[in-house]
Amino acid sequence: MKIAVCVKRVPDTETRIKVGADGRSIDEGGVKFVLNPFDEFAVEEALKLKEQSGEGEVVIISMGGDSGQETIRTALAMGADRGVLLKTDAKPVDPLVTARVLASEVEQGGYDLVLFGKQAVDDESHAVGPMVGELLGLASVSAITRLELAGGKGTAEREVEGATEVVEFSLPAVLTAEKGLNEPRYPALRGIMLAKKKPLEVKDVELDEEGMVVVELALPQSRKEGRIVGEGPDAVPILIDALKNEAKVI
């Protein structure tokens, strides 16, 4: 089984966001970057599938700047076989532009499965995976929490509001991973050492023109200051009164 996993380098979820001097992007000074948390689920699933089938290859693909190599190495340290960095300094906000670059790389690879995270925690587009599926005309299922493969076919489950959809599909397929699919492993020291020697190819890529531009990046309005209505159960009537007569939500 040959599996590609597309991963993105994103700011750690603990990051306090500061707006950069251009007013359109974040100030990256002091920001720690990590492998997108949802992409960890995708990498884990790929490794599990390879282990189960006892053969195959897991290829990590990332589009971005040179520092993306570090992110790819993290996935290699988890156990993936090799990496491809699609190098560009541009940081597109139009998901179609990213999807086209990834689709053209994946198309040449002859993969049985192409895995994505459900969404990147920076731009939060939750778009690139299903877009690549459509661009390549492959079966695709997004935000999956369960996966079973057998005999060139698969069954996946995805959670919708208050229910679960069950989808059957044929391979090759594009899938995006939701939390709950698995528990990602941590790279062990041995894995980190091995990852340094694994092949990582760097290719320059050209991007299409984007269909949107960022006008402004701003911090959200902070919530208006609240108050502690009291301590312990005796404060309950005060809370009820505030919810009923002031906030008018009950």
């Binding site: 979820t13 707006v19 731009d123 939060e124 949107m212 531009v213």
Partner: peptide, 12 residues
């Protein structure tokens, strides 16, 4: 909202 609601992006 982007960055988990820690910033808001205005796009044209």
């Amino acid at each position: 909202p982007v960055f988990a609601g820690k910033a808001t992006s205005t796009l044209k």
